[in-house]
Simulated scan of single mutants.
Amino acid sequence: MSYMESFLLALIQGLTEFLPISSSAHLILPSAILGWEDQGLAFDVAVHVGTLAAVVIYFRQEVIDLLSAFFASIFKGDRSKEAKLAWMIIIATIPAALFGLLMKDFIELYLRSAWVIATTTIVFGLLLWWADKRSSLTDDEYTADWKKSLFIGVSQALAMIPGTSRSGITMTAALHLGFTREAAARFSFLMSIPIILLAGGYLGLKLVTSGEPVHVGFLLTGIATSFVSAYVCIHYFLALINRIGMLPFVIYRLTLGVVLFGFLLLS
Rank of each mutant, 00 (worst) to 15 (best):
A96Y: 04
G153H: 07
T121C: 10
A131N: 10
W36G: 11
S165Q: 07
L102S: 10
K84M: 04
S2W: 06
E108H: 13
V63N: 06
H48M: 11
Y110M: 09
D38R: 05
A183C: 09
S192Q: 10
V47Y: 09
Y58D: 05
F59E: 08
A54Y: 01
H235E: 07
V232Y: 05
L238K: 02
A83E: 05
G153A: 15
I12L: 15
F71D: 01
A230V: 02
I196S: 15
P194E: 13
F124M: 09
A69E: 00
W87T: 02
F189E: 08
L109N: 14
G40W: 03
I64L: 06
L247E: 15
V123M: 01
M103P: 06
T225D: 10
I94L: 13
P20F: 09
G14Y: 01
V228Q: 00
A173E: 09
D139S: 14
K84A: 01
N242F: 00
V232K: 04
L67F: 04
H176T: 15
S31M: 09
E17Y: 07
L41N: 04
L238F: 00
G50I: 02
G222R: 00
G200N: 11
G245P: 06
G100F: 00
L109Y: 14
L150M: 15
R79Y: 00
R253T: 10
E212G: 14
I91W: 09
T172A: 15
L150Q: 13
S23H: 00
R79K: 12
F249G: 12
S73N: 10
T51E: 07
G217I: 00
L11N: 05
L220E: 08
V56A: 08
C233V: 13
V47W: 12
L19M: 09
F70C: 08
D78P: 03
R166K: 14
G14M: 03
L158P: 00
W146R: 08
